[in-house]
Design a protein around this nucleic acid. Structure first.
Lengths: 337, 337
DNA sequence: GAGGATTGCTTAAACTATTTTGCATTTATC
DNA sequence: GATAAATGCAAAATAGTTTAAGCAATCCTC
């Protein structure tokens, strides 16, 4: 019992396929199809429960009504929250989302772009990894809408939505300094991405502005694919070799979570003598005792901006000369707890 | 600068489209295409960077190499973790995932299935809502692979992967009873889904087995779309009207999180005199002071089972008589903290 | 009042990029 | 010179959209 095709509808209504197509696509008026025919066809569509085959449609029209979402890890709360918000808005415009996780691996990222290309997704939303600049440039050359977010790729002229990570890093560090911290460790992920770099630069700048300098010994770079155990070991070394540390700034949400577990495991209390700040406002940080101060990213705004840019480009006449790229940088908000 | 099509390759190699197609699909041997031709064509494919148009391919072959994932809310850590694990395995077999969130709304769920149908996804992974039985039955009638998970739809003969929620509810409740709790409240979501019902039944059974009965006053059903404020108000009423409560069992992860925030806000301590258990092992529960005991679902196993079933059905010869449906129920694990 | 344009409706055929079936041609073998 | 093997292609099919054209009746113009 195959689902009916447009041909079945046409046959049953005793009109041509074209006529059905016009009616389906709201061109009945323009093509001056009689009210009776429209009614008859629509009734038959109802009756047989006909739904146009989107694949055939895509082949002919060249658009799939699908947006490709490429992130670092869809199970990271930051990305899944973004995914959820984007999905909602896209859905209202008839777009579906296809997602993939890169694990910060440029090879995989490139493969994913290839895969999405062959699937002819209409637009791309990408949390990029360095090393895929050329692939993105390629997309742009084909005039396919692209927005990158979370991180920028500085030498690429592309729409982006990021937050001011330098400011974010600065505010977190300054907070700690004002709380009298003298030895602020910086724990980060060992990936050369723009947003992480900026968080570090903000940290560095805040230190300098207050007459301090970053200490190479208390800067820990943890590989993205490090296990929890591995992470713990590195943190252990950090604290053993640098007992003077009186605060830690974690540059990513998941590292901060691991850090909290680690501190709990070694029973190091977080208090007036030892402070923590994290990136991203998540439940864990609010619920922790004591609560953890964080640099909060405006997730709703980020998602909204992304999808607005995408939908706007999708609806724009692509034959016209391209308008300016949208370059959006949103402020972070430091939440003191 | 459009990407090249198979036609361009054929023209450049001075062979027919058919030949290129055979080479692309590894049928060159079988179709006795000469080594030289194969080599020449492959070189040109390389040179022009040709990637077959998956849309055209799908139209012709009838499969899209896409799996539709329909969950309650992709930003819920339980679902996003599942999504991530499924994605990995599917990707290795050349499948992509398209996702959507139902918000427990049967109307939206039905629309999503329709949308996926018109997009001709090859298989469905669904965390179902009551009211979509008929739509799923329809899919099954068309012999499309479907796995439902998280919740079962009892009157449907379909593959499913669930956990033993009755046992889960039982173990959590029994733990509290053994800890000497006399008045255990049950806070749940007001949706008639199988897994939530079973958690309640487990709770009820444990009470009965220990000579107690569920108290209707300490059973709180919170609408799925309730705001946090709304949730707080309901919890406030619960505790004000039932000061005798000495434990709460939250039937879902997000309600437990809200509950913890609420308890924090009214400064009600969690200790030997007042205990909490939650569903799903999440960071928040582990990091909380004191740590919260939970009913842990084996997420990796769930994801693995789901995708195994799907991939197996996708690779099976659909013309053959259908083999038995897979009905998987995995054990939960109570983690005492 | 003859020829062309317009109107209102409908349709045949082309097009999208690929797979697949059945057939055609060439070359080698005896 | 017939047969078989080797090699490759034409054309149909997939399910839609879109273009250009057809038809009959009416209107316009010189």
């Amino acid at each position: 019992m195959k689902p009916p095709s447009i041909k079945d509808i046409a046959k049953r209504a005793e009109v041509s396929i074209t006529t059905v197509s016009f009616i389906l696509n709201g061109k009945a008026e323009k093509m001056r199809i009689s009210k009776e025919v429209i009614k008859r066809v629509e009734e038959i569509i109802q009756e047989l429960g006909f739904k146009p085959n989107q694949v055939a449609r895509s082949l002919r029209t060249g658009n799939t009504k699908t947006i490709g979402l490429i992130v670092e890890d869809i199970s990271n709360p930051f990305f899944s929250a973004i995914a959820r918000l984007i999905e909602d808005k896209a859905y209202k415009k008839g777009y579906k989302i296809s997602y993939s996780s890169t694990e910060n691996d440029p090879v995989k990222a490139r493969e994913l772009i290839e895969m999405f290309k062959s699937r002819k997704v209409d637009a791309y939303i990408i949390a990029p990894v360095p090393g895929i600049e050329e692939d993105i440039r390629q997309l742009l050359a084909e005039r396919i809408p692209v927005v990158i977010f979370d991180r920028n790729l500085p030498d690429l002229d592309v729409n982006y939505v990021v937050v001011d990570n330098l400011e974010g890093g600065y505010s977190a560090t300054e907070f700690l300094i004002k709380k009298g911290r003298k030895n602020i460790a910086f724990v980060t992920v060992d990936v050369e991405v723009d947003q992480i770099n900026n968080r570090f630069l903000g940290y560095q700048k805040a230190l300098r502005d207050h007459g301090m300098t970053a200490n190479a010994h208390t800067l820990v770079k943890i590989p993205f694919d490090a296990t929890e155990e591995d992470t713990n070991n590195r943190l252990k070394v950090l604290f053993e070799e640098n007992p003077q540390i009186d605060a830690v700034f974690f540059s990513t949400n998941y590292l901060a979570v691991r850090g909290l577990f680690f501190l709990k495991s070694i029973q190091k209390p977080i208090n007036d003598g030892f402070m923590i700040v994290a990136y991203d406002d998540q439940d864990v940080f609010r619920i922790h005792t004591p609560p953890i101060s964080v640099v909060d990213q405006p997730i709703e705004q980020i998602a909204e901006k992304i999808i607005d840019i995408i939908l706007q480009e999708l609806s724009a006449d692509r034959s016209l000369p391209q308008s300016e790229r949208s370059k959006v940088s949103l402020p972070t908000r430091f939440i003191e707890r």
